[in-house]
């Protein structure tokens, strides 16, 4: 079963919830850091990461001695990444989406594909916890392939917690699209509420069952609670605003280590998420 932890906005406490849930249980659990632009989970985990592989995309290369400048590749490319010059086709990798269209369209055999590394996967283990991290290389734009590969590494595990990238665009969809339950983490502020609404729209579009976790509860107003009540959205947990937690967080110490109360709190959130899945299955 896959539980994705997501939010419309960054910095609401996604990683806090994902890591603390993973650390609160005694049975085998796999935590996937799919926030590949900014993977942070490792800072809070007592384990060493080892690189377990590269993520690459297939990038086209022109062999100019075979190219007849016929223009078939440029016509096939919907991303304007190819120009035809008298000296042959010219490909701009920074515009390429690695779809293979030009390679398939070339009748002269002048386009070949080579692997280009855009990110890395790493792995580590501590007790019952397996941790998998995907990381996008700086200057690369395509996060979804790295997210998909990181998730594939976890496939056999029975319980998978996915720390998703923030937002509602393609990276977030790549992370939560096939989750059995989505926990949307938010802050009780106007910014938090606005982002929560966007995230709710997105998970509803994707038809994923979901619930809300309020983090830093007490700092703002009642907007998030009122909204959830109106929309019939279950609040599966709330983490109080606690300067001690924030200070420990800044040093990489997760809340569950701070006190058994926090351990119980996150265990309960995980239990409710699992319950959310089984109740959906009953329907």
């Amino acid at each position: 079963m896959k539980i994705a932890v997501a939010s419309g906005k960054g910095g609401t406490g996604k990683t806090t919830v994902a890591v603390n849930m993973a650390l609160s249980v005694d049975f085998p659990v796999t935590l996937v850091d799919a926030d590949v632009e900014e993977p942070n989970g490792i800072f809070f985990l007592p384990l060493t990461l080892e690189k377990s592989g590269d993520v690459s995309i297939r990038e086209p290369v022109v062999n100019s001695s075979r190219c007849t400048s016929c223009g078939a590749c440029a016509k096939a490319c919907r991303f304007n990444a190819i120009a035809i010059t008298p000296k042959g086709a010219m490909i701009f990798p920074e515009l390429c989406h690695a779809c293979g269209g030009c390679f398939m369209a070339c009748r002269e055999g002048a386009i070949t594909e080579r692997e280009r590394v855009i990110g890395a996967l790493s792995q580590g283990k501590a007790g019952n916890l397996t941790f998998i991290q995907g990381e996008l290389n700086v200057g690369e734009a395509l996060a979804p392939p790295v997210i998909r590969e990181a998730k594939k590494r976890a496939e056999e595990a029975s319980l998978i917690i996915i720390d998703s990238p923030p937002g509602t665009a393609c990276p977030m969809v790549a992370a939560v699209g096939d989750a059995d339950f989505v926990l949307l983490v938010t802050e009780p502020t106007p910014f938090g509420l606005n982002d929560l609404k966007l995230a709710v729209e997105t998970v509803r579009t994707l038809s994923r069952p979901f619930g809300v976790v309020i983090n830093r509860d007490g700092i703002g107003d009642e907007g998030v609670r009122d909204y959830c009540a109106r929309e019939g959205i279950e609040i599966v947990g709330s983490v109080p605003d606690d300067r001690a937690v924030a200070e420990h967080y800044s040093r990489g110490i997760p809340a569950v280590v701070l006190s058994p109360d926090y351990k119980a709190l996150f265990k309960e959130i995980l239990r409710k998420a699992k319950e959310g899945i089984s109740s959906k299955e009953d329907l």
């Binding site: 910095g11 632009e37 900014e38 200057g139 690369e140 734009a141 395509l142 937002g167 665009a169 990276p171």
Partner: peptide, 10 residues
């Protein structure tokens, strides 16, 4: 600007 280092940030 947006968070992250990917396509929208670039």
């Amino acid at each position: 600007g947006p968070p992250g280092i990917g396509c929208p940030v670039i």
